[in-house]
């Protein structure tokens, strides 16, 4: 039962928060085995903030659709470390630890990218 709860929790988070992640048809429904304690200490909760601005449609704010975990992590770490960066993303990225960035990148990346 707890595992099932968690699957639903995590799966559902993606509907709203991670709507940028691609079309339903691309996805397969295999679920990894979750343990209870991983539910909200995961990147999925961190990613709730991303979906306030990033939607599935790219425009003045880029869609996160289709980026690999590595690409997201690299870019976010860049934002964090560029000392003279002034964009909204620079200002936000400075608030996240490298672990946070790894977790949120993993949560945002499509299935199939390297763990």
């Amino acid at each position: 039962m707890p595992d099932r709860n968690l699957q639903i929790l995590m799966g559902a988070l993606s509907v709203i928060s991670l709507a940028a992640c691609g079309s339903a048809s691309d996805r397969d429904t295999q679920q990894p085995a979750f343990s209870l304690s991983d539910a909200t200490d995961s990147g999925a909760q961190l990613a709730l903030a991303c979906s306030g601005c990033h939607s599935a449609a790219s425009g003045a704010i880029v869609s996160l659709n289709g980026y690999t975990r590595e690409a997201l992590e690299t870019r976010l770490l860049q934002y964090k470390s560029e000392a003279d960066g002034t964009t909204v993303m620079h200002r936000l990225a400075r608030g996240y630890s490298d672990d946070d960035i790894a977790e949120v990148s993993a949560a945002l990346a499509p299935l199939g990218s390297a763990p």
């Binding site: 709860n5 995590m10 993606s14 509907v15 991670l18 996805r27 429904t29 979750f34 995961s42 990148s105």
Partner: peptide, 29 residues
């Protein structure tokens, strides 16, 4: 209480699929 800083997550971008393909009709409990 567990701290969010002491452990890497297992979710790996995952679980995303479930939501996107539509949620199961059965409930949480």
């Amino acid at each position: 209480m567990t701290s969010r800083f002491n452990r890497r997550t297992l979710i790996k971008g995952a679980a995303i699929s479930l939501g996107l393909v539509g949620l199961p009709s059965v409930g949480l409990s």
